[in-house]
């Protein structure tokens, strides 16, 4: 398994750095994003490019702005300066001459449905069955008929190993199972990129593995993933690139072998010595 993963990583890397001029647009591009909460600066000029099919692990101390960065990417938070584009399309704004104009709420919702998001606390809808949790979004956004959505939901539940839980309610499941349902729910919209905000941090240690296995599976199947995680071992195994954030800035980024095993910055070394 891990040998295979390593291979994938190598081939992805062999593609070499993709310049902005080349044909496929970046899966995610963060352009000079600044974000304040009141007078408190949380993101301080973040630039980041994620290529299609790439798996990016975001590491950093608590409070460094990792969640905020993910939430800016799908526009749950509006950046004060800068913008994000996903597959070449600016999110939450459109270009108007040399300015950016805010999009309507409706348009933003449509954009979000093309970006998957998996929360630390799962946030499944407690009053819907597992199947309806997964099938709701494709129907509500008008992409699939109800029967087609249910069929897709069954397929996805099978893929995350929960085919037998379709009729259960979320609170009847373990944390690991709930998080796997949440991943299936995100997949149901066939998003171009999936963002994970500490997907295993709310889980008991013995349940972490089953969720990581599902994410690993996505990583090897070529889905673009951005994963905020404290699982350094997992990041080393599946990520094509590791991004280390501190104080709202990207301190360093690069292949796991560089950032995790050979960090150039004092702060990265500090952080890694604490979590390893």
């Amino acid at each position: 398994m891990s040998a295979e993963t390593a291979q994938t990583v190598v081939t992805t890397k062999a593609a070499g750095p993709v310049g902005p001029a080349e044909a496929p647009p970046a899966a995610v591009e963060v352009h000079g994003v600044h974000k304040w909460y009141g007078g408190h600066r949380v993101l301080d000029g973040v630039d980041l490019t994620v290529r299609p099919g790439e798996v990016t692990a975001v590491l950093g101390p608590s409070g460094s702005g990792k969640s905020t960065l993910l939430r800016v990417i799908n526009h749950l938070e509006k950046p004060e300066i800068g913008y994000v584009s996903v597959n070449g399309e600016p999110i939450g704004v459109r270009r108007h001459g040399d300015r950016l104009r805010e999009l309507s709420e409706r348009a933003i919702l449509a954009q979000r449905s093309r970006i998957g998001f998996v929360f630390q606390n799962f946030n499944l809808f407690p009053h819907l069955t597992v199947l309806d949790n997964v099938a709701a979004a494709p129907v509500a956004t008008g992409r699939l008929s109800r029967p087609a959505a249910r069929e897709l939901a069954h397929e996805l539940l099978d893929r995350v190993g929960l085919a037998d839980k379709a009729t259960a309610y979320p609170r009847q499941l373990s944390g690991g199972q709930q998080q796997r349902v949440a991943i299936a729910r995100a997949l149901a919209l066939r998003p171009g990129v999936i963002l994970f905000d500490e997907p295993t941090s709310a889980l008991d240690p013995e349940l972490v593995g089953e969720v990581l296995a599902v994410i690993r599976n996505l990583a090897t199947s070529g889905t673009t993933l951005v994963i905020v995680t404290h699982e350094v071992g997992f990041a080393r195994e599946v990520a094509d690139r590791v991004v280390f954030i501190d104080g709202g800035r990207i301190v360093e980024q690069g292949p796991p072998a560089e950032v995790l095993d050979n960090p150039r910055h004092e702060r990265t070394r500090d952080f890694l010595s604490k979590v390893l």
Partner: peptide
């Protein structure tokens, strides 16, 4: 729960 609002928005469900 605020998480429910966020999950619904993140999925892009219409208002």
């Amino acid at each position: 729960d605020q998480g429910q609002h966020e999950a619904a928005s993140a999925l892009g469900l219409p208002k």
